[in-house]
């Protein structure tokens, strides 16, 4: 068995003294793991940093085997990512989100989104908005997508200001007002009437919204904690949005 594809490095795990098990995200084969012999060498360590775009050749005798990777660098983004806290927290959090997906299950749009967001992580304010959309896409691929296009009660497509914590569907201002305390806020940039940029308050509400559903549908049922890097990313993105001219 053999295939060759472009991939984004998500992380590595030590294996023995000289090798690592690399975890990469590919367009056609989703999240994939493989053994990299000599992965802890001076030449391979910089290549195997999360966020780098690499060319991967996977080989194994049987499809269900872990297999071996031969990796060549294409674009090494890690050094640029290391310059900012937002970028580092972002790459770690996105890798953690992709780890929630089943291995070897293709999610081409998530691969594309990851590639784009990694290129824009040095713009923290814009990265926050992209990241929220990435979390929504992961929720959707896990089967817990939110319907933010129309009001669950009235069917209206305008003035959507809430999200029902029960159904994960948008609710218009008039229908949701009596239950406002129990509702989650729908930031305007996620609704059908999209704005160009999100305000710090809207970003905060968006992180609360996706965080709520990730906890309820993903982290709590699996008994795992939300990655601490997400909190770091949230704080840094909101701070950057506040400092935006």
């Amino acid at each position: 068995m053999q295939w060759q594809e472009e991939a984004i490095v998500l992380g590595v795990k030590r294996h023995g003294e000289t090798s690592v098990i690399a975890e990469v995200m590919t367009r056609e084969r989703g999240r994939h793991m493989g053994l990299v012999r000599g992965g802890r060498s001076r030449t391979m360590q910089p290549v195997l940093q999360p966020g780098n775009l690499v060319d991967v050749t996977w080989r194994a005798r049987l499809d269900e085997h872990l297999g071996e990777f031969r990796i060549e660098p294409i674009r090494q983004r890690a050094a640029r990512l290391m310059e900012s806290a937002v970028a580092l927290y972002g790459v770690q959090t996105m890798a953690a989100l992709l780890r929630l997906l089943p291995e070897r299950d293709p999610h081409p749009h998530l691969y594309e989104a990851l590639d784009i967001i990694l290129d824009h992580l040095d713009d923290p304010a814009g990265a926050g908005e992209l990241f929220i959309r990435f979390e929504l896409a992961v929720l959707n691929d896990l089967g817990f997508g939110l319907d933010l296009t129309e009001c669950a009660a009235t069917g209206r497509r305008d003035r959507l200001t809430f999200v029902s914590p029960k159904s994960g569907r948008a609710v218009s201002e008039e229908a949701g007002r009596p239950y406002a305390e129990r509702m989650l806020v729908l930031p305007a940039f996620l609704g059908p009437e999209r704005q160009e940029t999100a305000s710090p308050e809207e970003l905060e509400a968006a992180f609360r919204l996706t965080g709520f559903f990730l906890h309820r549908h993903v982290y709590d049922p699996r008994g795992i904690e939300m990655p601490s890097a997400r909190e770091g990313f949230r704080e840094a993105a909101i701070k950057a949005a506040r400092e935006r001219p």
Partner: peptide, 15 residues
């Protein structure tokens, strides 16, 4: 270390 994990830890400590 000058790795993504090392630098994430550095930023966490700074925070």
């Amino acid at each position: 270390n000058a790795t993504v994990e090392g630098q994430t830890t550095a930023h966490y400590i700074t925070d």
